[in-house]
Nucleic acid binder design. Structure first.
Lengths: 163, 163
DNA sequence: ATATAACCGAGTATTTTACTAAGGTATTGT
DNA sequence: ACAATACCTTAGTAAAATACTCGGTTATAT
């Protein structure tokens, strides 16, 4: 199974996109600052997200990325699948040729686990994450931190409410 | 999350142990042959399994390893925990200091996932695996293969590699 | 025109994995 | 007794993957 920073970054970035969806396209530079992810790395991840039709891009000044679909219909499993190979935990890739062309002793166990994980992550939409109070709190903290060092810019993100 | 060959090997080896428990201690050389895992690598894994009191060793000729407890009370999660760090999917190790000492946007998601995986693997005992018909079939295949090529040689590993 | 920001490809330091090598040390059949 | 067996330990290492950087091109709003 491959669930590393890459997949985590992708989900984080997509969630950032969903959280700031109501202010037009979001630039990777903004995501980079808020989530502290390298800009170049984000570009590589978004290339894959775009290939999998999870995001759409708007070029030029004021451009950025936006979700291709409604946040209700984008699931965490899809995001991880897009940047990783899969959430498969077998080392044969589910093909069952783990031991000289035949299945190894624990093949079925890892198949079951993979299915379990995939089901779980397939049940979590971006929209459901956006609505979580813990997520909201973190997002507000990040937005506030991003604005504070710059006294008065043209940004119109407004702080909404602080806790 | 770290679920790689290491954890898979450990579970496979423990299952092999459980399957051959009724013939006295099982040597690592036997497991190495049956499961096609490097002997030295197995030794390293079993050092950790022993530290976590999952197996007990019997030294000297005819010696080997056996389970410390009944197969009904040994769970897959324990085995993976013993050789890996954990099945944690956060990159802060569950501490919540992922972003400058504070939680990152997706922290709670990975916590939930980790819990999910751990629960699943904590519910699967070695005994339950031994009883699975698919596992039995694979085990029989491996046992047959191990015996057949040894016609008359007292030698052990022979060529081991081909095709 | 120019700044902005998406796009693209190649390269690279670091880390992890999955081993190998080379020695031990302890136990036991003979 | 003693050699065979098998556990135990440490150190090292090739290959792969990760997590980036760097340098550039293309498109578009102003």
């Amino acid at each position: 199974m491959r669930l590393t920073t890459k997949g985590r970054y992708a989900v984080t970035a997509m969630l950032d996109l969903a959280l700031h969806a109501n202010h037009g396209p979001v630039s990777l530079a903004d995501i980079s600052k808020r989530q502290e992810i390298s800009l170049s790395y984000l570009e590589q991840l978004f290339a894959k997200l775009r290939q999998n039709d999870l995001v759409a891009s708007v070029r030029g000044p004021g451009g950025g990325y936006k979700l291709s679909r409604e946040a209700e219909t984008v699931f965490v499993a899809q995001i991880i699948d897009a940047v990783n190979e899969s959430v498969d935990t077998t080392n044969c890739g589910g093909k069952g040729d783990c031991q000289n062309g035949e299945v190894c002793l624990t093949h079925y166990l890892w198949c079951d686990l993979s299915e379990q994980i995939h089901k779980f992550l397939s049940g979590i939409s971006l929209a459901s994450l956006v609505e979580r109070s813990e997520v909201k709190r973190v997002a507000e903290r990040q937005d506030a931190k991003q604005q504070s060092p710059v006294s008065e810019n043209a940004g119109m993100i407004t702080a909404s409410n602080l806790v």
